[in-house]
Design a protein around this nucleic acid. Sequence first.
DNA 1: CATTGGTGTTGATCTGGGTCAATGCGGCCA
DNA 2: TGGCCGCATTGACCCAGATCAACACCAATG
Lengths: 240, 240
Amino acid sequence: MIRSEDRPVCHRSSPGHHCEGCSVRPLAVCGALGPGELERLSRVSSSQRIAAGSCLIEEGEPAECVFTVLEGILKLYKLMPDGRRQVTGFLIPGDFVGLAFGESYIYTAEAVVEGAACRFTRNQFHRMMEEFPALEGRLLSKVSTELAAAQEQMLLLGRKTARERLATFLLGLARRMNRSAGEQVRLPMGRADIADFLGLTVETVSRTFTAMRKAGYLSTVDKHGVVITDLDRLREAAGD
Amino acid sequence: MIRSEDRPVCHRSSPGHHCEGCSVRPLAVCGALGPGELERLSRVSSSQRIAAGSCLIEEGEPAECVFTVLEGILKLYKLMPDGRRQVTGFLIPGDFVGLAFGESYIYTAEAVVEGAACRFTRNQFHRMMEEFPALEGRLLSKVSTELAAAQEQMLLLGRKTARERLATFLLGLARRMNRSAGEQVRLPMGRADIADFLGLTVETVSRTFTAMRKAGYLSTVDKHGVVITDLDRLREAAGD
DNA sequence: CATTGGTGTTGATCTGGGTCAATGCGGCCA
DNA sequence: TGGCCGCATTGACCCAGATCAACACCAATG
């Protein structure tokens, strides 16, 4: 296991950037704002690169900032004292990070691949929400979507078999990445991350991939590429 | 298993009620509003009783209304086609029900014991939120809290042992009901509901209760009462 | 080009919790 | 007062997935 002192550190860049030209804005909470408001937003935000394997925020640390993912993939996870880990989700550009009701972050957000995020202090973001209720509305909608996904994941973790879990995961990923059957789905995360997301071990994930390959549901390209070759049967294997 | 056609039906009462006098308001989203605004709210809401075992909303049904729990306990759950069930949470007075981004409810809300709820149509509630952003703020805060609880539950379902799950559940319940060690915690739900919440079977829940009783962590009063007799060891058993 | 370390796969074995089945135990109604 | 009926508990056995161990496959490094 990688401990925090082994991980690369986030590089913090200067705030000289422009929200108007931001390509993820339509996807993000900031999509709620008009041109004049974006000017205000630009002044209170700053972008930063995130090296692969580095943590944007860490569970238990004081929650001072919130972020919008600009680029890359992040994984969110919680740890138990003995090292058991549960990945609670993967974030893609446009997603919001850092919601913490209380003083501290309740999960760690670690970059799976190199990326970037847009940072606000919680205070400034709060002020922006008070000033522009549309921002709060967008955030509510984002958080609600996340809650729905979390409930779906509880069903997966509480009641699905290993095969159903992996099938559900792959279908969800394909849908989220707008891939249809036949197209390649990229899995930027490693087997350990998938296992910790699905509540399984790496061995079981690996065996289940092999079983699905043999059953003809899918083929794997290299260790990060999957092609769904029989969508119906994969759907059936997902069980719901 | 109880199918919907066997269940009692919700009784719908008239809208003649007053938000000002509402005892759960301080806990609920409506706590955001002032006296004049409550007058408006009274006009678009109506209260209804919920018989034990009846469903306030059902997974897959068109999502027309949202609710605040006034009284009683509800369980939220999702079903798989073959009947496997995951309880995603229990609601107490002040909690909000019915968030559904999309056309349909994504879970069923069923009364564990007889209770009551305050109903709004989604449209009217939306209009109220646009008019009074503070309402949206309170809802965001409620939903964020629920999301945090859902992430905690993912850790439980994905990574904890049966003993850890039950210990975590009991500690959470005691905290939520403001009970300290030595006081009785009431479990209005049956073993099947607990099992479906913790991703276990009734047999395992029962065996784990027995093991904890024998180990001296707790004693059971009747089948719905639990007294935590050794808080430290129960905390230790929760593992985190 | 050999070496090493990180990641994935496969095999053998073990076990926590599931499954199946019997029994206990009130509460309720006739 | 006895006979259900709906839970909860307990016991015996089983199995999906965990654990432990070996090995394969690069990519990076000297």
